[in-house]
Design a protein around this nucleic acid. Structure first.
Lengths: 168, 168
DNA sequence: TATTGTTATACTCTATAACTATA
DNA sequence: TATAGTTATAGAGTATAACAATA
């Protein structure tokens, strides 16, 4: 980090570490709130939030896996937990009998609504409070571009099927 | 996310999600490389890198816990693994008999050196390739400021002692 | 009493591979 | 044959609390 960093300028290195630390601290804080306010992990919250946002509150497992989890069995596990708690429902898709349609229940929507204010407030306080309007615009633009770049350039060892469904 | 987001503008929400996804993808990719090139996890790499960077290659467990891990037992666990592999050494501190001084071994330094090029190259390719010089400057500055803000504002439920040593 | 660190334990989450069923 | 999903299993990592030792 002092010297053995050929290929990255000190400025880049600093930005890299700052990014990793900020996201780590943010996720930790947010996770804590979700846990306390609704007994939800970050992954579970994301699943519920995506469903809440989807038309009809329904998504296929595959669509859901996309971006939330890095393996299918991981999603099955999390969906199992949410199902047990009555926050989602799973049923075979009419279109494709192989697919499973996941649907948020009313209880699921209620829980999201219950947890959202505190969640959002954490993010606002920790991430955006110290940020000027101009900074926000740049940050959003840059990170958006980086995200697209990363999605288009999956790690060389991207698994053909078990990998993050993002690559599918 | 469509509506239930009082307190965050759509722009903020977008930046928030982009940040989380970018850091998640980056960490995943980087972790994969570290694992493949040196059988190291991200946490283990951070420990070794910090030691490599420290004067004399030595740090106390407490200093090391700071920022790397969220519990002391977690650090003990990771240090145990690195110790077993001969990458670090642990010995009682002369100054304070309670403390343990962790030292990188030559093998540890070698491993860091071996892993660093690929690591840095991943980061460069994924994170900085799509980034303009001006973007980098802003990103670094903003994230640096956010990091300071977060360090100064630990989550309300910061544990008195078990918490991330950062708060100690 | 407070701090440093370890240990025991329990638990969560993840990933791999094998398997079923449908397209 | 390829895709969607589940299951079994095994392993990595984490957190809590209890503990010992030093300041």
């Amino acid at each position: 980090m002092s010297d053995p960093t050929p290929g990255l300028t000190p400025e880049q290195l600093g930005a890299y570490f700052a990014l990793m630390e900020v996201s780590s601290l943010l996720q930790y804080a947010v996770d804590e709130h979700l846990r306390a306010d609704g007994d939800l992990s970050w992954v579970q919250f994301q699943i519920l939030a995506r469903l809440t946002d989807a038309p009809g509150g329904k998504l296929r497992m595959t669509d859901l896996a996309d971006g939330v989890v890095y393996s299918r069995s991981g999603l099955t596990y999390q969906a199992g937990l949410l199902d047990k708690r009555g926050l989602i429902t799973r049923s075979p898709s009419p279109d494709d009998e192989r697919s499973v349609l996941v649907t948020v229940t009313d209880a699921g929507r209620d829980l999201v609504a219950q947890v959202m204010p505190g969640h959002v407030e954490s993010v606002r306080r920790l991430l955006f409070e110290p940020m000027a309007g101009r900074d926000l615009a740049t940050l959003g633009a840059v990170l958006g571009r980086v995200r697209e770049h990363m999605r288009a350039n999956p790690p060389r060892s991207a698994k053909p099927r078990a990998g993050r469904a993002r690559n599918a």
